[in-house]
Write a protein that binds this DNA or RNA. Structure first.
Lengths: 159, 159
DNA sequence: AGGAAACTTGATTAATAAAGTCAGGAAACT
DNA sequence: AGTTTCCTGACTTTATTAATCAAGTTTCCT
């Protein structure tokens, strides 16, 4: 129970973009609807994804967001680290600058925490959003990100 | 960074008991000193371990705590679950009664969270406190749980 | 008995983090 | 111009974590 809500939202948003047609930008509102996220939360999450180079944005009436790289180049680990921080289960077991274990002479639990960390990293860094999109396909093709707002020309449904 | 302080304390305390001589009980104060934990916190953690059958207690001047089973029968996973709760990284990926994913038709991220959960469980449930004690030995033999309080007969130093 | 040492229990408080809201600003298209 | 969209930062509320405190009960020893 350590993945917080923002991380959950952010990964869902990126997945939604990976599933969507990348040839045009998608509005915040559409992403919010597709991922069941409060718009105001995505409003602060997406700039963060943008600053990290994961997503690209365009302003104005035709604006919105799209992925900045092909989905196979974006790992789940990257997004999780960005929003959530280090993947170690405990602060004495981070890869970079771990806090020393307070137990005298350091304790053997640390090795096990490190093993959990490595297993987590192995999974998250080897899973790309292309993988996730492929897995989701067939389950989600019916309702892609396309939310037709009145007045907006409906996005071209992929063949 | 999801293992909270109490879980850290509790696992350290059990490890301290696993490293100590099990033929007599060890006082809360000694455990607190050996694990660098506030006594008042162990005061609420150890009853919890006791209720779960992990530890046994005796009252009175000669009282204290000791393991209720041989260390090879106590897994790290058991203690972590007890203090911390389910090991799943997110509530939609618990083994028992997961909350439904709010994304339409359920999202493919869930499978990855479940994979992280399973990897974590595999490590934590296969690591016993006998393993941890063996690993710690040589690093920790110098300062075992034995803390001689004035007036108390010093615990028999093994060999 | 009586007292001291230990565990037991439940309430309480303070600090921190998470989650969500809000208001005003800046760019771009029509 | 004016509308639509993204952008930014401060703010509020709530939940969780962490630690403390004050009585209580059991057991041993003199």
């Amino acid at each position: 129970m350590w993945i917080n809500r923002r991380t959950d939202y952010a990964t869902r948003a990126v997945l939604a973009l990976a599933l969507a047609d990348g040839s045009y930008p998608h509005k915040l509102q559409e992403l919010a609807a597709a991922t069941q996220t409060p718009v105001t939360v995505l409003e602060q999450l997406l700039p963060q994804l943008r600053a990290a180079g994961i997503v690209r944005s365009e302003r104005g009436p035709t604006g919105g967001y799209r992925l900045n790289h092909p989905p196979e180049d974006i790992t789940l680990g990257k997004v999780v680290r960005l929003i959530q921080g280090p993947l170690a289960p405990i602060s004495c077991a981070t890869r970079h600058g771990p806090e020393p274990c307070p137990m005298e002479l350091g304790c053997s639990l640390q090795e096990t925490w490190a093993a959990v960390r490595d297993a987590t990293i192995a999974i998250l860094d080897s899973t790309t959003f292309a993988d996730l999109a492929a897995r989701a396909d067939g389950r989600w093709t019916e309702t892609p990100v396309t939310v037709t707002t009145p007045g907006t020309q409906p996005a071209p449904t992929p063949a």
